[in-house]
Simulated assay, not measured.
Amino acid sequence: MSRAPGRRVVPGMAIHTVDVNGVEQRYHVYGQGAAIVVAMPGGPGVFWDYLRMPALEEHVRVAYVEALGTGESGRLPAHPDGYTRELYATAIDRIADDLGAGKVFLLGHSYGGFVAQYYAATRPQRLAGVILYDSAPVTGAEQGAEVARQVELFVKRNEGNPEVPAVLQSLQAVGSITDDDQLTLALRGLLPSYLADYWGREAEFKPFREHIRVNYISGRDAGGHAEPIDDRELLAGITVPALVIAGHYDIICGERWAREIHELIPGSRLLILEHSGHLGNVEEPERFQDSVLRFIAAQPR
C-alpha cells in the first residue's frame, strides 16, 4: 500500500505522508515553534492519538508518527511481521527529512521508547535530544518477571474491586490475540491496570478508554523471528541529551527500568511521575509536558 508523498491541511493540524521503502508513512503535525518533537507511539500498533500533548503543542511543533502497519499508514508485504526497530528508525529519518528539520527531539513511549533509544544510539547526529518515556533496557523473561510483580501490587491496591478479575483476564489474553478488533477490546479491558487510579478518575478516563485503538503487530522480523531487546550496552553509549520519564505505578515499563536507564545514559535527566501509571501524558499532563518543555529549552539551539 503506497501513495505519492504529500500533505493535507485540516484545521489545527497537518497530515503528512512520506515514502518508506515503497510503503506510505503517515504522520500528523500540531503546534508551532522552532523546536520539533517527533513522537513515536507504543504497542507496537497502538494508534498515535493517545499520545497527544496539547500543552506541548503551544510551544513546539509535534510530529506524531502513525506507525507503519498501524491505522492509515501502509502495511508491509510481510504484515504483521517485519516491523523492526531499524524500519521504524528509517521512517523517522524520512519524517525528519520531510519536515526540513536539522536536528529534532525524539520522544518515544513504551515500545516507541525502544525505538527512540535505538535511534539515539545509531543516529545521534540527527537528534537535539531524546525523551525515553516508559521505556526499558530489556524485554523477555527479566521484564516479564517485573510485570508480574507489578500486577500483584496492582491487585493489592485494588483489593475487593469487582472489576479487577476482568482486567486480569484481559491482561492474560492480550498476548495470544492477533485480530485487530479483539486486540482493541482487550487493550480497553486491561487499561485500568495501566493507570494509577482509573476508578478514582473514571469519569475522566472512560472516554479515553473507549477511544483507544490498536492494530496487531507481531514483533517479529520479516522472517518470522522475534526481535529480543537488551539495550544496556547500547544505552551506555548514548551521547545525545536524554530525559527519562516513568510513572511510579507503571506495570509495564515503570520506575525500576527508568532508574536503570537513567544510570546507564551519561548525564541524563530523570522524572518519576508519582501519580501516574503507563500514561503520564494523560494522568499528569501538566507536570509531564512542563518537564519536556524545560528539557527542550535547556538544549542549545
Results as ranks from 00 to 15, higher is better:
V151L: 09
V151P: 01
V151E: 01
V151C: 00
E152Y: 03
E152N: 08
L153M: 15
L153T: 15
F154Y: 11
F154E: 03
F154N: 01
V155W: 03
K156P: 02
K156C: 04
R157P: 08
N158V: 05
N158C: 06
N158I: 05
E159K: 11
E159T: 12
G160R: 07
G160P: 12
N161Q: 10
P162W: 08
P162Q: 08
E163P: 01
E163K: 15
E163Y: 08
E163G: 00
V164R: 04
P165S: 00
A166L: 10
V167P: 07
V167C: 04
V167I: 14
L168E: 08
Q169N: 04
Q169K: 14
S170W: 05
S170V: 00
S170T: 00
L171P: 01
L171F: 09
Q172E: 12
Q172Y: 06
Q172I: 07
Q172K: 14
Q172D: 10
A173F: 02
A173R: 11
A173I: 01
A173C: 04
A173Q: 13
A173V: 04
V174E: 04
V174F: 07
V174K: 07
G175Q: 03
G175I: 02
G175M: 03
G175V: 08
S176V: 10
S176K: 15
S176I: 02
I177F: 09
I177G: 00
I177A: 07
I177Y: 01
T178M: 11
T178C: 12
T178K: 15
D179Y: 02
D180Y: 08
D180W: 06
D180G: 02
D180Q: 02
D180F: 07
D181A: 15
D181M: 14
D181K: 15
D181L: 15
Q182C: 04
L183P: 05
T184Y: 13
L185P: 04
L185Y: 07
L185N: 13
A186I: 00
A186F: 04
L187N: 06
L187E: 12
L187K: 03
L187H: 04
R188G: 01
R188D: 00
R188N: 01
R188M: 05
G189H: 06
G189S: 10
L190V: 09
L190K: 12
L191N: 06
P192C: 06
P192K: 01
P192D: 07
S193N: 11
S193D: 10
S193I: 13
S193C: 15
S193W: 08
S193V: 12
L195Q: 06
L195R: 07
L195K: 03
L195W: 09
A196F: 10
A196S: 14
A196V: 11
A196P: 13
A196I: 09
D197Q: 12
D197E: 05
D197H: 08
D197P: 11
Y198F: 15
Y198G: 03
Y198E: 07
Y198V: 00
